[in-house]
Design a protein around this nucleic acid. Structure first.
Lengths: 222, 222
DNA sequence: CTGGATCCGGGAAGATACTG
DNA sequence: CAGTATCTTCCCGGATCCAG
């Protein structure tokens, strides 16, 4: 293993998770929960298959990931974060917060998965009408997305599950999706763009009126 | 610049600061404040000189670092974090928290600089006797270390400055220093080991009785 | 002396093909 | 499905050299 050789908590931490792709694997496992190899590959477009296998081995050796072989007839391998690996959530959350101002509209070559929004949505969503009955808003699709469950003021965001009944679904191009949840475009505009299906009030209910995190375009008057 | 090509705040953040050494450069600039090239080199043992120059250029291009050429007769270059670069403090803090359990005693090959303790000390130190007059405890030396200033319950940790008058100085081998401030060894033991010069009560004053963060050795009874 | 640039070897990362 | 094998590319690490 490559090490910085420094007796410093940051350096020792980076010795374990500073390699390329490692924190993105953590993101996947934090978002999706225990996952199979092929699911991780789908959530990590651009990673070489041998590299994913290497990372999973290294992370297992470092005690961050556990590997479970399911017996017949399932015959699958499931990767999950250990407690120590899940403890990286704080690091990832701070990173996402720091990266938020970088979320200008995506380039044409850039990949997108709706479940990547899970960690940001946990920080962004609110229950604006806590006295209303519980509702679920889906972002993305049943195959790849997040389910935002609200009720009694509590918000829970999970990876979307096909078996969950939802009150509304929000989908569309990635840049618009991010702009909607960061409050840069109003719900009405998203609806006019055909991004919303189902109960539009459920969507209004969960969107926190967060002040714009993105820097204004150069030359804009503040 | 190499990129993950993912429209995700974490991936875009890692595109900027995920390269090797980058976050350690941030650590140095957060701890020392504006610094010269040679100072950064001293705080980053193991880095190749060309690599440091490359990183500083890339970080400048990314808007994380500013470069100021001081005019004659000083004729030096000073590197400092921009506001955006300084905003990485949250990421670094979470990383240090996560890395704390990794701080088992250092190996013989491992480098150490006392100013690396600055960020951890900010989380660790308290003012246990807020009504006493203000005091300063130095960790390490005037050349490389931290000054912990306490008074009226407020703790401020800065890089050590030769012009600061201190009430006590703590120094010694790196593992013992970490053990002392994480509460794994008592002040009395550190004193018996000759680690403390000056007012030992000033040292007691700043050490927070933090519960042990390190995992107990295997087989230990909890 | 400070703040680098240049050159080179080794190894990590990336792309693709293939397999139990 | 969950990888391995192989090849290429290029980043990193170490040493040396250099301009102001």
């Amino acid at each position: 293993m490559r090490t910085y050789g420094q007796y410093c908590a940051l350096a020792r931490g980076l010795d374990l998770v500073g390699d390329r792709w490692t924190l993105l694997v953590v993101r996947e496992l934090l978002s999706l929960g225990p996952s199979r190899y092929a699911d991780l590959q789908r959530g990590l477009p651009g990673i070489a298959t041998n590299l994913l296998a290497n990372r999973l081995r290294e992370m297992e050796a470092a005690g961050l990931v556990s590997r479970t072989e399911l017996p017949r007839p399932v015959n699958a391998t499931v990767f999950a974060l250990t407690e120590r690996g899940a403890a990286l959530e704080g690091v990832v959350r701070e990173f996402v917060k720091w990266g938020a101002p970088l979320m200008s509209p995506p380039g044409p070559e850039e990949a997108f998965r709706a479940h990547w929004l899970l960690i940001p949505l946990r920080a962004l969503c609110r229950d604006n009408t806590p006295n209303a009955p519980a509702q679920v808003v889906r972002v993305g699709s049943a195959d790849d997305g997040c389910d935002i469950a609200v009720g009694t003021g509590v918000v829970e965001v999970t990876a979307s599950s096909p078996s969950t009944m939802v009150d509304a679904t929000v989908d569309g191009d990635p840049g618009a999706l991010v702009a909607l949840f960061t409050g840069q475009i109003p719900v009405s505009a998203a609806d006019a763009a055909g991004m919303i299906a189902g109960d539009i009030d459920a969507v209004r209910r969960v969107i926190g009126g967060m002040p714009a995190q993105m820097p204004p375009p150069a030359g804009a008057t503040s």
